[in-house]
Design a protein around this nucleic acid. Structure first.
Lengths: 128, 128
DNA sequence: CTGTATCCTGCCGGATACTG
DNA sequence: CAGTATCCGGCAGGATACAG
């Protein structure tokens, strides 16, 4: 157990982990990751917003700031009119996104197990 | 994009992912995983509570129910007095926990990068 | 277009008390 | 011991308006 151990209540890694796994952080990271994988250009704010279904401007902005501050996302603003800003992952961000994607894909791939587990749980609990 | 894709707003995998990566879900899963790895016996409610630093009874209970319903955690109650209940991961839960641990360990291992990124961000932003 | 600023609400989650 | 039940405050986060 070192100072960064997530299990201790006040450790810095817990906050970063919350940014990464938070409601919008994970989706934002994976959206940026997949864009990069597909050799698309870096994503602009509203492109990102469209990909992360359901996120509000405010939350996307907040999320991006947190991720940028943690060194996971790079923000590049071109001083033109109309404004042109795009986002991409840093190398660290890409490493994090890969692990995250591993988790997401595992869960997606085994949702049938989850769903049948839920049905079992609901019927046996409902019967009590 | 199938029906389980996390990017769509209403997909079942998003809720499971929220249980797994939620404030207490991840810590609970990894606590159970590490206990299993260390060949300790399965964990009882209050043992678990002590390991997941800061969790309240209510939230641990809620978290465990959600994870049990999703088929990630197995709850076994022995009908004795005083009550004896213990928890362990299902095989699916163990797979999920492994991926999650991969993510956690990556973040923990590279917190120094995160911290220096934060310092850079704060000074340059503060200077504006 | 890329965001802030503001307001407002729901619900997350902590504290406490209680039960089997 | 292993939880539920209840109350309640704070804040995450949505809607809207606005600014550069």
């Amino acid at each position: 157990m070192d100072a960064f151990d997530v299990f201790s209540r006040q450790c810095p890694s817990r906050t970063t982990l919350e940014h990464v796994t938070g409601r919008w952080g994970g989706l934002t990271l994976t959206a940026l990751y997949e864009s990069h994988e597909n050799h698309e250009s870096r994503l602009r704010f509203n492109e990102l917003r469209r990909r992360v279904d359901g996120v509000s401007e405010k939350m996307l902005s907040q999320t991006l700031h947190a991720l940028e501050r943690d060194g996971l996302v790079l923000r590049e603003a071109r001083p033109v009119n109309p404004p042109w800003v795009d986002y991409e992952l840093t190398p660290l961000g890409r490493d994090v996104a890969e692990r995250l994607l591993g988790l997401i894909q595992l869960v997606e791939g085994r949702m049938s197990e989850v769903i049948s587990a839920r049905e079992r749980y609901d019927t046996t609990r409902g019967a009590l």
